[in-house]
């Protein structure tokens, strides 16, 4: 274990400079977030991820946010295990009919003030699955959405830029 740990000291820092907050995301957010919430939350957000029907591609890239290169926690952003602990719901996938109820319950279990970030092309409007009998549509068709981060899947940099935009306006 020591060898691996020592090596972490010698190979230099992997963590990269943060991308600029996403401009489109900023405009979208500016409309939905108020100053009072900023004061209340401080510069820190807890995120609860909900897969409402995704192919799992988005989850892989969301996971990557926690690796040494992107190091999400340095921005005061962290993933939590329960909606009760969350400020932000990060929702992926077209919302399937079979997940609609679970998403609603998770949303209702998240205390106010809260934000919903819809991640991925499918989360915007159902994407290539939109016309299926088994799909409800995009995330906004089920719960109010504050920020969309498109992409199939969005890469970790795009995710980070979107989340930083959320942080700049909300915290």
């Amino acid at each position: 274990m020591r060898k691996v740990l020592f090596e972490s000291f010698t190979h230099g820092l992997l963590t990269e400079v943060a991308p600029k907050p996403d401009e489109a995301g900023l405009t979208e957010l500016a409309r939905s977030v108020n100053r009072a919430a900023r004061a209340r939350l401080g510069r820190s957000l807890s995120i609860r991820q909900v897969d409402a029907g995704s192919c799992n591609g988005c989850e892989l890239e969301i996971h990557a946010l926690n690796n040494a290169f992107y190091d999400l926690e340095r921005f005061g952003l962290r993933f939590v295990a329960s909606p009760r602990h969350a400020d932000v719901l990060m929702v992926t996938g077209p919302v399937t009919k079979n997940m609609r109820e679970a998403l609603l319950r998770t949303y209702n279990a998240t205390p106010d003030p809260k934000w919903v970030v819809a991640v991925g092309a499918c989360a915007v409007d159902g994407g290539i699955f939109a016309k299926s009998y088994a799909v409800e549509g995009g995330v906004k068709d089920v719960v109010p959405v504050d920020l969309h981060i498109p992409g199939c899947p969005p890469n970790p940099k795009a995710l980070l830029a979107g989340l930083l935009a959320l942080l700049e306006t909300s915290a």
């Binding site: 029907g53 399937t96 009998y133």
Partner: peptide, 11 residues
């Protein structure tokens, strides 16, 4: 299981 059934085969 079945929660993420998207009806892919029908699409």
């Amino acid at each position: 299981l079945g929660y993420v059934h998207k009806g892919i085969e029908s699409l």
